[in-house]
Amino acid sequence: MTEKDTTHFGYREVNKDEKAGLVAGVFDSVAQRYDLMNDLMSGGIHRLWKRFTIELSGVRPGHSVLDIAGGTGDLAAKFSRLVGEAGQVVLADINYAMLTVGRDKLLDHGLAENLAFVQADAQYLPFPDASFDCITIAFGLRNVTDKDQALGDMLRVLKPGGRLLVLEFSKPKNPLLSKAYDAYSFSVLPVMGRLVAGDSDSYRYLAESIRVHPDQDTLKGMMEDAGFARVEYHNMTGGVVALHRGVKA
């Protein structure tokens, strides 16, 4: 296999054709306990990261929003209330198990009228050009096989002036924080995954996938190369997480 034929699955080098199936296995395994594990892993701080994403989205009543890799629907629920009856939110995820959990949760909360649920690959979005005012992808880009292709397709389906927000784990700036974060990720998370979700391997993969994901400046450059303008990022929790924002000119 040549370098062009391979990609990362955690620390493993795998054929690009294999990655989607391997990632699907991870999320099939963790879907039912995903929300609980998010709260436990982050101490609930993930809710603050998502709230900041909402604040920077600029979403208003009547807007159309696409939440890619939307999983169990945390962002979609908030956007649904923001856009109101005149707007629409599409919750998209490549993984059927995650999409089902998200759909059932949002329907249970009575948020069906302005929501649509679509199983979709971020690299091949099944939407017309210039369809959305805002696109978000939270903790999903690192699982995409071809990130450049996905960013290009996100740009395609955004309306001119629309915003992309990428919320993702990134690289801590402080060496001491980075060391503590590594110890937590590789010692505590797999044990927590085994005890709570019955799956330590999937959470070991999630920790590895964060380490091979592009750092803040690299991702900023990738968004600019894809055609986004005014790209900026905001570090949160010392750079453990970063929110990148770009605009379609």
Rank of each mutant, 00 (worst) to 15 (best):
F169V: 05
N38T: 03
L22N: 07
E113L: 02
D225M: 08
F9M: 15
V26C: 05
L164D: 13
G10D: 12
D108L: 01
V26W: 06
R245W: 00
R33W: 00
E208D: 15
N174L: 07
L106A: 04
L165K: 02
L107M: 03
P190A: 01
A20R: 12
D133H: 11
D217C: 03
P126T: 05
A76H: 14
F9C: 14
L151F: 11
V241L: 13
Q119D: 04
E3D: 08
Q32S: 04
E3V: 14
S178H: 08
G239F: 12
L151T: 10
G73P: 11
R156K: 10
D146E: 12
R194Q: 09
Q119M: 12
R156S: 11
K220Q: 05
W49C: 00
V65W: 00
E208A: 14
D182S: 09
A180F: 15
D133G: 06
E208F: 11
G87N: 04
L177W: 12
L176Y: 14
L99I: 10
G193D: 07
N114Y: 02
Q119I: 04
G221R: 13
E13K: 15
P175Q: 04
G73D: 06
M1A: 07
V240Q: 12
G43Y: 04
D121W: 14
G152Q: 15
F9W: 14
G84A: 03
L36R: 11
A130M: 05
R156I: 07
D93L: 13
I135Q: 06
W49T: 00
F228C: 05
M236R: 14
D39G: 09
L75G: 14
E13S: 15
L106F: 02
V59S: 02
D217N: 09
D17V: 01
T6G: 05
D108V: 02
A229G: 09
A180Y: 10
D93N: 15
V166R: 09
L48P: 00
Q149I: 12
H234C: 13
D129G: 00
R194H: 03
G227M: 14
S170R: 10
V89Y: 02
V65A: 02
H63E: 07
D199L: 07
P214Y: 13
D28A: 05
G21D: 13
L243A: 15
S187R: 09
S29H: 03
A20H: 10
L176M: 15
S187C: 09
M98I: 11
G161Y: 02
W49P: 01
E18S: 13
S64C: 03
G227I: 15
H46L: 10
A92E: 11
S57C: 00
N114P: 01
A116T: 09
V65Q: 06
